[in-house]
């Protein structure tokens, strides 16, 4: 059961039951991006308001498993109000967290070299890397957010 508790940490269950920044933003002006995981049928819509180089607001709708839903909720809390530069940095750090390093997995299951203190609650998602089929669930919202930011360029 220890593996399972690693995956379904209390923070994750909390964000699953009470997702943050749930809802829609008027689009336009908000950027609206859809994300799909055809394997599980998870669907997300991410709305972004960007003002003066800052992600001033973010809302997310959709449905999916606890991992995809909590990851999108945690993401929204982590990036809201941050400068676009900071947002891209957080995305990069999260993707690094989700990268499976098989050599390290073989020892203690921890991914390599991510400063967990710097990412706050997002660290709760690190247990996902032990369940490779679920990584796609965790990264869905983040890939969707990245696509939205790409539309700004």
């Amino acid at each position: 059961m220890s593996n399972l508790e690693d995956l379904y940490r209390e923070i994750i269950l909390d964000h699953y039951r009470s997702p943050r920044n749930r809802g829609e933003l008027a689009s336009p002006p908000a950027i609206r991006v859809e994300g799909f995981n055809p394997l599980c049928g998870d669907e997300l819509v991410v709305y972004l308001n960007v003002e003066d180089g800052t992600l001033s607001d973010i809302k997310i709708t959709g449905h999916g498993c606890s991992i995809s839903q909590s990851s999108s909720s945690l993401m929204s809390a982590a990036v809201k109000g941050k400068s676009l530069e900071q947002v891209r940095e957080i995305i990069g750090t999260f993707k690094q967290l989700m990268t499976v390093h098989e050599s390290t997995l073989a020892h203690d299951g921890e991914p390599a070299k991510v400063d967990l203190r710097a990412i706050g609650e997002l660290a709760a998602l690190q247990g996902v890397v032990k369940f490779p089929v679920r990584i796609k669930c965790a990264t869905l919202a983040w890939n969707t957010l990245s696509q939205g930011l790409d539309q700004l360029d």
């Binding site: 059961m1 593996n3 399972l4 995956l7 379904y8 394997l39 599980c40 049928g41 999916g64 498993c65 606890s66 991992i67 839903q69 369940f131 679920r134 669930c137």
Partner: peptide, 19 residues
């Protein structure tokens, strides 16, 4: 969610299919 069910069940050696 069915994926979470299948994940928890797997910890008990139970093979069910979500999707």
């Amino acid at each position: 969610h069915p994926h979470d069910i299948a994940q928890v069940l797997d910890q008990f050696g139970v093979c069910v299919r979500p999707g």
